[in-house]
Design a protein around this nucleic acid. Structure first.
Length: 573
RNA sequence: GGUGAGGUAGCUCAGCUGGUUAGAGCGCAGGACUCAUAAUCCUGAGGUCGUGAGUUCAAGUCUCACUCUCACUACCA
């Protein structure tokens, strides 16, 4: 048993997330957390809402509420959506929490003492009408390259050229449309990442268990040469830039830390809040001088987040010179696309977490999204594939297996695990299958290879159906009830096994199965020691145990459902 | 523009350091069974591995060029 710390990239506050965000970090992190818990590890799974930055302020403004109130409201909405998706966070925090304010300010002080922070002046566009500085992409104007009239300050969407907002012709605020904009000097704190390049490279090179996607992105940035990054912004909502005594730093009135500086620190601050709430300590998870050397820390994120997790945040950690825990393994995902294109709220393409639950139970989404996780490349979501996953894998292969054997046992064997008979060829075959497949499944989970783990899970369910075909208790029943009892007994044991294995993926259905089979909580873990214990799996239930037949576990998705959903949320073409 | 990832059956994807007839699931066709959610089980058809060249006894796998998709490109997060 070991201690495993799991974090998933913090979902941004400005609205409930779509299925791509779910599939790209929170859901796989949850499946991994659940699997590791079942294997007996001590797991801490931390997530939080990422609440600072310009989009949060603008979203609040659009909703005509105070930013703090807006974030409060959206945090609750995201928390609720996560709970409904059965995301088993140990703690779901907020980057705006007091603990994160304190810790972020602490890191800034320490980094400055180490000479890694300095003040510099830069030019930034200021909108008089909006009364605020505008990030590059919130300035629009005519592209100096192709004369496209709605080019953004960072890049022109028409010709693709990278731009500087100062180069735009006739610039205007994307927030208000006002042309009353000007360039002003503004001072900010810069984190001298360049100083730590060599340390970071050594650390990246020494890393193990990162997907190529992650290490290649990190090395690419290092090869190009790390530039110092500004870690403050001209905003009012965020973490104030303070002196050690808590007073506002001179010249930083109306400025706060950059959201990407404080967001990863929230992983630690949220752990502190978790500890406070649970009256325990947090340091053994994060301080290598307090036991965190024994922790395996795994981060889950989308590919757009890799640079921040492999370079910026490690710069904060390493640069502090304090004994903080660095990430050990990270899992980076590509995107889930909508029929190969982008999710788009404005064009009515794609499904958000709250809407998803209106139309199908969370188990359906969890299974489909994790079985088709965008691990090695972008993965397309289509209604047709979703329907196929649910109907074929869940309803036909798993649901029908549970149904056929429990109903048969209820009808012919009084709803009890029957005695009698002896294992034969079919049982030998089944045991062999399980002996190879279960260890394989476990190693896929340990390697965080989710698609493969799901394919293996499905193969195990299918082996159950194949076994019943071989054992054919309904045929034997006519001539030899004891022989039929063997098949029913093994079949019922398989139902339990399938329920146990399904827990990380489809927790609701797993619960229904295990409850119907009268399996107590304590007997639902993954204690599959060696080959002997796997052989015992098909005859583990006490003879005479009363079992029930659960209601239909998965209702099929009809073609008419697909039509209605395509109408509502968009689809192909 | 630069960098990275990807382009493999109708669809969604596996294929590690190059090695005999390129794999899975879905879908499709045929058969078996009847305990079950018209479910399940078996068999089969289906691919010039983005394009072109090169290295090699041997290339989906290595090299080069080209092409398409996606991401990042440091003030969106």
């Amino acid at each position: 048993m070991s201690k495993i710390l799991i974090t998933s990239a913090l979902p941004y506050i400005n609205g409930v997330k779509h299925l791509g965000n779910l599939a790209g970090s929170m859901l796989p992190a949850d499946v991994y957390a659940r699997a590791m818990r079942l294997m007996g590890h001590e797991v801490l799974y931390i997530c939080a809402t990422d609440e600072h930055g310009t989009p949060a302020e603008l979203a609040a403004q659009a909703a005509e509420v105070e930013v703090a109130a807006y974030c409060e409201q959206m945090h609750e909405a995201q928390k609720a959506a996560g709970e409904q998706f059965k995301l088993s966070y140990d703690y779901f925090g907020r980057s705006s929490a007091p603990s994160n304010h304190a810790l972020t300010q602490h890191f800034a002080h320490v980094l400055e003492e180490k000479g890694l922070i300095e003040e510099r002046v830069s030019q930034q566009v200021y909108s008089n009408a909006d009364g605020r500085f505008l990030p590059d992409r919130y300035v629009e104007g005519t592209c100096p390259n192709c004369e496209f009239e709605k080019a953004r300050g960072d890049q022109c969407d028409n010709c693709g050229k990278l731009l500087d907002p100062i180069d735009l012709i006739d610039p205007y605020s994307a927030v208000s449309g006002s042309k009353d904009v000007e360039v002003r000097d503004t001072n900010h704190l810069y984190l001298k990442q360049s100083v730590l390049s060599d340390d970071l490279r050594k650390w990246v090179n020494a890393s193990e268990g990162w997907p190529p996607l992650a290490s290649s992105i990190a090395l690419k940035w290092l090869d190009e040469g790390l530039r110092d990054r500004s870690i403050t912004r001209d905003l009012s909502w965020g973490i104030p830039v303070t002196n050690k005594d808590g007073s506002i730093r001179k010249g930083f009135e109306g400025k706060v830390f950059y959201v990407w500086f404080d967001a990863p620190i929230e992983y630690i601050a949220a752990t502190q809040d978790w500890a406070a709430e649970n009256k325990t300590e947090w340091e053994s998870w994060w301080r290598t001088d307090k036991g965190a050397d024994d922790v395996q820390y795994v981060q889950f994120m989308g590919k757009d987040n890799v640079a921040f997790h492999t370079l910026s945040f490690p710069t904060t950690i390493i640069g502090s010179g304090e004994p903080w825990k660095l990430v050990d393994q990270l899992k980076a995902f590509n995107w889930v696309t909508w029929y190969g294109g982008k999710f788009s709220t404005s064009e009515k393409r794609g499904v958000f977490m709250d809407q998803a639950l209106d139309i199908a139970p969370s188990d359906y989404w969890r299974w489909h999204l994790i079985a088709n996780a965008p691990e090695s490349s972008d993965a397309a979501f289509t209604w047709e594939e979703f329907q196929a996953s649910v109907n074929s894998d869940l309803a036909n292969v798993l649901g029908n297996f549970v149904n056929r054997i429990t109903k048969y046992a209820a009808g012919k064997f009084d709803g009890k695990v029957p005695a009698g008979g002896e294992n034969g060829e079919a049982e030998d075959w089944l045991v062999k299958e399980l002996e190879t497949r279960i260890p394989q499944l476990i190693s896929y989970y340990e390697a965080r290879e989710f698609r493969k783990a799901m394919a293996e899970t499905r193969a195990i369910w299918a082996a159950g159906n194949e076994y019943l075909t071989q054992a054919a208790p309904w045929t034997h029943y006519k001539t030899d009830v004891d022989q039929a009892a063997v098949g029913v007994r093994a079949g019922l044991n398989l139902v339990v096994l399938f329920g146990i294995l399904a827990q990380p993926i489809i927790p609701d259905a797993a619960e229904k199965i295990l409850a119907a089979m009268n399996i107590p909580e304590g007997n639902r873990t993954w204690n599959f020691g060696g080959a002997e214990s796997i052989a015992q799996l098909i005859d583990a239930l006490p003879v005479g145990l009363e079992i029930g037949a659960p209601d239909v576990l998965f209702t099929k998705i009809e073609d008419s459902d697909i039509e209605a959903w395509t109408e509502r949320f968009g689809g192909g073409q």
